[in-house]
Design a protein around this nucleic acid. Structure first.
Length: 251
DNA sequence: GTCCAGGGGTATC
DNA sequence: GATACCCATGGA
């Protein structure tokens, strides 16, 4: 695994550079990781978090269908999808609308400090139901997103997220879009990064550029672009998306 | 001052 | 179905 491209490709937000690697704080975990190893987390949880159960070589081979993908994969060998906690992932991408990554990181750290749990100087993310004050949420810097985060905090359950993992893609996508503030893009991020829906293909402004510039797409509607990509790349389209997103942003 | 940033809701044609 | 505008905010 290549830690830099994996952690800094916009899927996870609460990490800090430490020594020669990173400290990651997510769910109930706070651990250190670099390109040579890790500490502070059990191997079972580490392997789950970085999707070591995937057949990485086979997946990369399956999605490398053209020269664009060959360039993206060659640029970031070892880039992996992360299997996140669905609730933390949901709040993360509710924070992500029409803003930038540094600000998402700032807001999530504020939310963890204000609503979460402190242990040995580490601020862990709040659990479902604990983000229960809209004004404090706005003070975290979330702006108009506060009302959505607060509403979703009062609706979802652990069971809801477990169901999303068992549903087919379309059903799970529809279920997420029933929630306030969650449209097709944020729903795809939640499914891909935390619900084992590897065919989900989130399309933000950067992925729209990729599909128009590099894949000749004309219609810029979400459903058109997303269904094209899912058909073209197949069952692991989400992995292709992560390579292309990171590649396009760093050209 | 203007534009853009891992969007979504709503009104309007 | 597409398009326009609004939502708050910060950095370029």
């Amino acid at each position: 695994m290549h830690t830099q491209s994996t952690l800094e490709s916009g899927q996870l937000f609460r990490y800090w550079k430490e020594r020669n690697g990173y400290r990651v704080v997510h769910g109930a975990h706070s651990f250190y990781v670099d390109d040579h190893g890790y500490s502070g987390i059990h191997s079972v949880d580490f392997n789950s978090f970085f999707r070591m159960d995937d057949d990485y070589g086979a997946i990369v081979a399956a999605i490398t269908k053209d020269d664009v993908m060959r360039r993206a994969v060659a640029a970031y060998p070892g880039l992996r999808l992360i299997r996140q906690d669905p609730w933390e992932c949901t709040v993360s991408f509710l924070c992500s609308s029409a803003t930038n990554i540094p600000r998402i990181q700032r807001d999530l750290n504020n939310i963890a400090r204000v609503f979460g749990h402190e242990n040995n100087g580490v601020h862990y993310f709040p659990k479902i139901g604990e983000i229960d004050d809209v004004e404090k949420l706005k003070q975290c810097g979330t702006g108009y997103r506060a009302k959505f985060i607060h509403a979703v905090n009062g609706i979802v359950t652990r069971r809801f997220f477990l169901q999303l993992k068992k549903m087919d893609y379309e059903t799970a996508h529809d279920a997420l879009m029933e929630l306030p503030g969650i449209g097709p893009k944020i729903a795809d991020c939640i499914l891909l990064f935390s619900c084992d829906q590897m065919s989900a293909f989130p399309i933000d402004t950067w992925m729209e550029k990729v599909l128009v510039d590099n894949y000749g797409r004309r219609k810029r509607t979400y459903t058109h672009l997303s269904s094209f990509a899912r058909d073209y790349f197949g069952d692991y389209a989400g992995y292709a998306q992560q390579f292309l997103y990171h590649w396009k942003r760093n050209l």
